[in-house]
């Protein structure tokens, strides 16, 4: 599974302070009302964000725009310093490899073992088999699934599947980690452990965006910033999300 054809993405600005920038972004499915309207914010490189909001507020849609599963109906999205809206399709894989995603429904490959699911991003990126085994075993140990290495998703509990999904999202050391309710199916102890994993990753420079309802989780990361969605609009009364401190308005 060599990564033939995937464009290598290079940042246009090595010292890029903002890894993501949304400007008046709108998203509409079909001909209905806009699911997201006038979304404008900036994510600083290496920062930690929680995205909250009631069910149906548009959290998952916003995350889809972030991990390039959806193109916006209007507005500008800049990712890694490049315009992600007009990005040619052939360049998407290169961008996606820099983003780790924990899907709300896990999206594990059901006929692959936990090991193979976690190894998938590395194999897609063309990493040699010999270089895959150690990090996968480490990740399995991290998420407490060393004894479930050969288990396939249908035989795993919801919490175990979630942990496999998280391990798969972080194994490639992504520059951005996007997680949709990543602790929804695990007990508090495991949630704390996973959050510690996200925090560790964040300390290594990964920008983390976690969509969650869990207020306890939100309170446990002191440095995290809050993004709150309400009926498709981002609440930013102070403008701190759009123009964060130190942000050079362009």
């Amino acid at each position: 599974m060599a990564g033939a054809g995937a464009d290598k993405v290079t940042s246009t600005d090595a010292s890029m302070a903002n890894i993501v920038q949304f400007d008046n972004v709108g998203l509409r499915y079909g001909t209905g009302d806009e699911t997201l309207s006038d979304i404008s914010f900036t994510l600083a490189t290496g920062a930690f964000y929680f995205l909250t909001g009631a069910s149906g507020a548009g959290k998952t849609s916003l995350l889809k725009l972030l991990y390039l599963a959806q193109r916006p109906t209007r507005g500008v999205i800049r990712l890694f310093g490049e315009d992600a809206v007009t990005l040619p399709r052939r360049r998407l894989p290169g961008f996606r490899r820099r983003i780790g995603v924990v899907f709300q429904d896990f999206r594990l490959v059901p006929h692959l073992s936990a090991y193979d699911n976690i190894a998938l991003p590395l194999r897609i990126a063309g990493v040699r088999e010999a270089d895959i085994e150690t990090p996968v075993h480490e990740m399995l140990a991290w998420v407490g699934l060393s004894d479930r290495i050969h288990a396939k998703p249908p035989t795993l509990s919801g919490g175990e599947q979630q942990r496999v999904a998280i391990a798969r999202a972080v194994i490639g050391r992504p520059e951005i980690l996007v997680a949709d309710e990543p602790t929804g199916n695990v007990d508090p102890a495991m949630a704390a452990r996973l959050l510690h994993l996200f925090d560790s990753l964040n300390r290594l420079g990964t920008t983390v965006v976690i969509a969650t309802h869990d207020m306890h989780l939100i309170g446990s990361v002191a440095t995290a910033q809050m993004m709150r969605l309400d009926r498709g609009r981002l609440l930013d009364p102070t403008g701190a999300l759009r123009f964060p401190p130190g942000h050079a308005a362009s």
């Binding site: 599974m1 060599a2 990564g3 033939a4 054809g5 995937a6 991990y67 599963a69 052939r90 998407l92 894989p93 290169g94 961008f95 996606r96 490899r97 995603v101 899907f103 999206r107 594990l108 490959v109 059901p110 998938l120 991003p121 897609i124 990126a125 798969r168």
Partner: peptide, 19 residues
């Protein structure tokens, strides 16, 4: 479809899937 969507989201190219 499900597997392919996952592969795409993880950065797989069309050529990799086609292969």
């Amino acid at each position: 479809r499900g597997t392919i969507e996952i592969m795409h989201m993880l950065g797989s190219t069309d050529v990799q899937v086609a292969r």
